[in-house]
Design a protein around this nucleic acid. Structure first.
Lengths: 275, 275
DNA sequence: TCCTTTGTATTACTCCGACATATTCATTTG
DNA sequence: CAAATGAATATGTCGGAGTAATACAAAGGA
């Protein structure tokens, strides 16, 4: 009856402060050479709750294709023991995955991975999991295509409906973008804030939520893009064009300027990924 | 000290991830023969697992505004006792809500409702909850606006990329729409299948997922629309126009025909809700 | 022979009670 | 008066016991 005193004091203490983007990309070797006992602990740092960490782990494994649709996970007891956590924690993690449409559990049959078209691919967490590994290039193209559809239309609506407060938010974000560059986290945040301000000006909740998701995903790729090469283009002037058109209430120009912006971003990302 | 008799719900089974067509529109009251005293609690009406029922209940209460953003729910023990369920079941329900961005729990502070812009409004379940009460007319307008943006663009892509199999699916759906009317469930299903076929032809996963969500929501309103008045218009010819354009590979015509279709649907729904 | 019905084994589902951990808030100390 | 310290409290995690639902196989009837 192994008692598993999950008292971290034992051996090596794992990273405490990963918390953010890391993910557990480095996949442990499938061969567990278990020195003493079950090797693949790989638990959580502080911050994420345990079931959150498990959900992240499983979710990433599913979206990355490690488990295929139709596969059935080993039973609750077996899996929770393998992960060295209690059944409660494992179950709560599965509830999360189930809520996002990744899996479905039923008595007698167990928990099985649902087909891809049932997944909530636009859920922020699912997107994060999808981008924690190496992102599927085809899927990234889909996202940019969607963005290219939605954002120009949003800019048109914003040009019709914006008020002074909206414009001020955009100006502030632009100023922040000028100060920091896109290479810094602050700069990327300012970029997101600008787009969020545009979205908020549409007075359309569905649009806001949708593009919040897409924006998060785009942020991953932006970071990805940065990693590969310092991007040459200065994005601020293009953003200013969008702002000017929205401020002037010029619907057509706003849509067109935003379309250009998205196209350039796509171009940068594509060259960064393929080249 | 009444002790959990939670005896009801003998009836139909089949839980699945609801989220789809079923809805809870025709809720209960088959025979059911309430055993003596189910009166006050009457938690799980039907089928769903217990935590799913709780999530539905809480989720609907939150999106309907019964709990406001910033409010903190009573503690786990208190709430689970009030609902007459175990703490585990309640916790799993909260995990679901947390996964959909409706609430956030932290030690000591409790579980509090997140601001609206954190909600995954495009999650199928959240949409179902939003439409389980009387839908917010402003939000419905947002959805139709989004649909009016996305679907014509999707039709344009479909006109470029469709293959024979896609066209056959559309034809089959159209035939089914002709046989049954929109007044029947089979007819509405055929309608959804047509739109799904168009979406699938875009070869864009993000678009498929998004419009699956929107389509489900639109299905609610369609049903709603039916309830209020038999709609006069025959929708088939408009759908045929879309099909013809896609089959011909005419990008512009496809987008325009779909735009018309969405506008008409919006018009019908608006008159049904306001009139 | 085929279909229906029944039985059974397996699995998730629910419950319970205890302990661990994290975070807030009041208190104490420099 | 401010920073460190301690206690209080609610969520987080645990393990085990018992219930309910369902796939699958076997037995029975047409």
């Amino acid at each position: 009856m192994l008692k598993v005193v999950r008292k971290d004091g034992g051996g090596e203490v794992q990273s405490m402060s990963d918390s953010m983007t890391n993910g557990d990309a480095p996949p442990e070797s499938p061969v567990d050479a278990a020195p003493e006992q079950t090797a693949p602990k790989a638990k959580r740092g502080t911050g994420r709750r345990l079931h959150g960490a498990i959900a992240h782990k499983l979710g990433a494994a599913i979206v990355s294709g490690e488990y295929r649709p139709g596969d059935t996970l080993s039973g609750e007891v077996a899996f929770s023991e393998a992960l060295d956590v209690s059944r409660s924690a494992y179950r709560e993690a599965v509830q999360v995955l189930s809520a996002k449409g990744l899996v479905e559990s039923r008595p007698k049959t167990g928990t099985r991975v649902l087909p891809r078209n049932r997944w909530n691919l636009l859920d922020p967490d699912v997107l994060a999991w999808a981008f924690s590994g190496e992102p599927d290039i085809h899927f990234v193209r889909s996202l940019f295509e969607l963005r290219a559809i939605v954002e120009p239309a949003a800019a048109r609506l914003a040009a019709e409906r914006r008020d002074k407060a909206d414009l001020k938010e955009m100006r502030d974000a632009l100023a922040a973008m000028r100060r920091h560059t896109l290479a810094t986290e602050a700069g990327r945040t300012a970029d997101r804030e600008f787009h969020n301000a545009v979205l908020a000006a549409t007075r359309n909740d569905a649009l806001v939520v949708l593009t919040a998701s897409i924006g998060a995903a785009v942020a991953w790729t932006t970071q990805f893009k940065q990693r590969s090469r310092a991007l040459p283009r200065n994005p601020v002037p293009d953003h200013v064009k969008v702002y000017d058109a929205i401020a002037a209430g010029d619907v057509e120009a706003a849509g067109e300027a935003m379309r250009l912006l998205v196209d350039l971003a796509l171009e940068d990302t594509r060259s960064a990924m393929e080249g």
